[in-house]
Design a binder for these strands. Structure first.
Lengths: 196, 196
DNA sequence: AGCGAATTATACCGGTCAGTAGGATAGTTG
DNA sequence: CAACTATCCTACTGACCGGTATAATTCGCT
């Protein structure tokens, strides 16, 4: 009962995601969002809560829709293959021509005012989840024998994530897909091999 | 002639640099700056121009004071040594305990509103200068014979800068100096050797 | 038709944004 | 002392910030 919504919340959330991805959390105003989403302020607050809630929902959508490749990548047969798929898939997402360049998890907030500290910490935590997932995969690989016993999965996961973060900043700075893939080429050169 | 300034502009600029480094350009308000610098708004505008001018001056100071190691690093005898000194020196700057973690060139602005677009582009341009300086060093190394003829200095410079940017984000996320140095360890593993 | 519920749009809230006007103050120069 | 000048502080500007009160509108239901 009651009046029907005149906009599609899912579609509106996609638009909000685009704006946040381009301008970051702090650089995006409610007016920026309502203008792009084609709805009024009260509609936004009724449908999504406040700005912080909306950002978190956009972040969820982003991970669900754009970072979903990561789960599949981690299931590749070898650790090396997993990492390479991870980095190449990420390079493609970062430079997807239908979206603003870069990653919401980085563009969202790297440094910000105290008012946005909660969002910054949320992003740090989410990035850490990914790093830990990769570490777990490398530990599994070490058990399986396709990752050297004397190498530290925690250190390697941090290294791979750092490469990804660097590519994210480069993408936001205008780097092309090909340039990022060439970064991946070099990043994989030092990958450790199990002694025969 | 006229009243003397009651604050040291250089000291005040150091403080402004700290604030910008912690909160970024857009996340820093004039009030944040005047509070930290211990001066009033009109004093700030009289001494440094507007917010954008002040940021650029802080950026100049940052490069002069914290990134000065890079020039020396590039003069190391070999390309490999130059790159390793570059990355290790950068890791130390990023985690210098007397300053907010991370790099002003990254924390300053990765994604922002249109109002700060000029600053974002300035940072991109300055990062590109560093990348080009490294490329030139690698090209010189290729002439000197301590970098392989079949490797592309442009690609390698982009790779090294990407590593640095990734470390900068990790530092801003709380990574320790030791963790960043371990990233450097792995980043250097794939460094190309000249065929004997 | 008429009631209640949900969404709509307008118009506003106090607070903060970057930037400045204008008068008071302190210093140099005659 | 008086004149000049540069810096100081208080107080302000208009615009924008995130968020909301209010009332008109539009639907399902009886």
């Amino acid at each position: 009962m009651g009046r029907h919504r005149e906009f599609d919340p899912d579609e509106a959330l996609h638009v909000a995601l685009q704006v946040f991805r381009r301008q970051g959390y702090e650089g995006t105003s409610i007016s920026d969002l309502t203008d792009a989403m084609g709805i009024t302020r009260p509609s936004l607050y009724a449908a999504f809560g406040n700005k912080e809630d909306l950002f978190r929902q956009a972040l969820d959508l982003y991970e669900r829709q754009h970072l979903c490749f990561a789960h599949a990548a981690l299931q590749a047969p070898t650790a090396q293959e997993s990492v390479e798929r991870l980095l190449r898939g990420y390079a493609d997402v970062l430079t997807d021509p239908t979206n603003p360049p870069g990653c919401l998890g980085v563009n969202g907030a790297v440094a910000c005012s105290e008012a946005s500290e909660a969002i910054r910490e949320e992003l740090i935590a989410r990035r850490m989840v990914n790093e830990n997932n990769l570490r777990d995969r490398l530990e599994q690989a070490r058990s399986n024998g396709d990752f050297p016993k004397n190498e530290d999965p925690t250190d390697w996961a941090r290294y791979v994530v750092s490469i990804g973060l660097g590519m994210a900043v480069k993408a936001a700075s205008g780097a092309s897909r090909e340039e990022l893939h060439r970064v991946v080429d070099f990043a994989m050169r030092g990958w450790p091999t199990v002694p025969a």
